[in-house]
């Protein structure tokens, strides 16, 4: 058999990679660029493609101006009244909602996930069983998670009614019907679904810590909780950063869970950016495109430092 001719060899490799290259160029690079570019135009439903149409439709930052003046996107009635009696440090709308959700998801699922990982690391029996129980929600669709929790949190027949019927009449868990508490309700469901993954990632990180560290800490008489907090936790920084990025990027694009659990309600008090983008596609494309661009920029700000840290040094993805 002859050795394959180099041109032929390269050709097959290129042909096999061609569909992927086309997709990356057209959809990922092209699609993202299209969305960003046409967020600066007064685009209507009719799609426009050409540079001439872009120039003719160019309206600068007007879509963004409108976006941030839309109550559904962001509405902070009392925030700027600093020093006055009606000063109120609260914001409503899709953007503040997602910020609330991201903070809750990151803080709660990361702390609960870390505690669970530490507990799982105590040479317990039935570790496999506990792992299976903590992780199974992650296999489910957000739509499934949303509807289960919607039933549990239903004020009429759910947990609240049942606990009240058992005698604790002041028990209040009607969060999904309360515009101030609804994002917390969504966070409970999100944390239920996502904490198992955080636990699994952190447990892998804990298991990667050199055993000598533990021996040294024991020899020095440092109590275990301090070893975890002051020695092991800082050593787990790469794992913590990766987990943070995963939880954050998942939380920023939250959509299905909100659709199933509240569908943005009551009113629009649990609206989130992805839902805002989606519901504006037909009537208000400029709003959709500018809101998606804001999401893209947020994600980039979150991810670029991480990608440089994680992949800059030619490590494996």
């Amino acid at each position: 058999m002859d050795r394959p001719n180099p041109l032929f060899r390269n050709l097959w490799s290129k042909i096999a990679a061609l569909p992927m290259m086309l997709i990356v160029l057209v959809v990922f690079v092209g699609g993202t660029a299209w969305t960003v570019l046409f967020s600066f135009t007064n685009i209507k439903i009719v799609p426009i493609f050409t540079p001439r149409e872009w120039v003719n439709g160019f309206i600068g930052l007007a879509n963004y101006q409108r976006l941030f003046n839309t109550d559904r996107w962001m509405n902070c009635p009392g925030l700027t009244h600093i020093g006055r009696s009606d000063w109120e440090p609260t914001c409503m709308g899709a953007l503040p909602n997602v910020v609330t959700y991201v903070i809750l998801a990151v803080v709660l699922s990361m702390s609960l996930g870390f505690v669970l990982a530490v507990l799982m690391d105590q040479k317990i029996r039935a570790e496999g069983l506990f792992r299976t129980i903590y992780l199974y929600p992650f296999a489910l669709s957000f739509i499934v998670t949303g509807h289960v929790w919607a039933w549990i949190m239903s004020p009429e027949y759910g947990l609240q009614a049942s606990v009240r019927a058992m005698g604790w009449t002041s028990f209040d868990f009607g969060w999904i019907a309360d515009r101030h508490m609804v994002m917390y309700a969504i966070a409970v469901a999100g944390i239920w679904q996502g904490t198992g993954l955080v636990m699994a990632l952190m447990l892998a990180g804990l298991r990667g810590i050199d055993e000598d560290i533990w021996k040294a800490a024991r020899v020095d008489g440092i109590p275990a909780w301090r070893t975890y907090l002051q020695i092991v936790l800082p050593m787990m920084k790469p794992v913590l950063v990766t987990t943070f990025v995963i939880v954050c990027s998942g939380a920023v694009r939250i959509y299905d869970l909100v659709v199933a659990l509240t569908d943005g309600g009551p009113g629009i008090s649990s609206d989130v950016p992805t839902r805002y983008v989606y519901t504006n596609f037909s009537a208000n494309l400029g709003q959709s495109l500018s809101a998606s661009t804001v999401m893209l920029v947020t994600m980039a700000v979150l991810l670029i430092p991480w990608i440089r840290m994680e992949f800059g040094k030619k490590s494996q993805g």
Partner: peptide, 12 residues
């Protein structure tokens, strides 16, 4: 590409 939120590319 694997990190871009899907919603950005939905309309294209």
């Amino acid at each position: 590409s694997s990190f871009i939120p899907y919603i950005v590319m939905v309309y294209p």
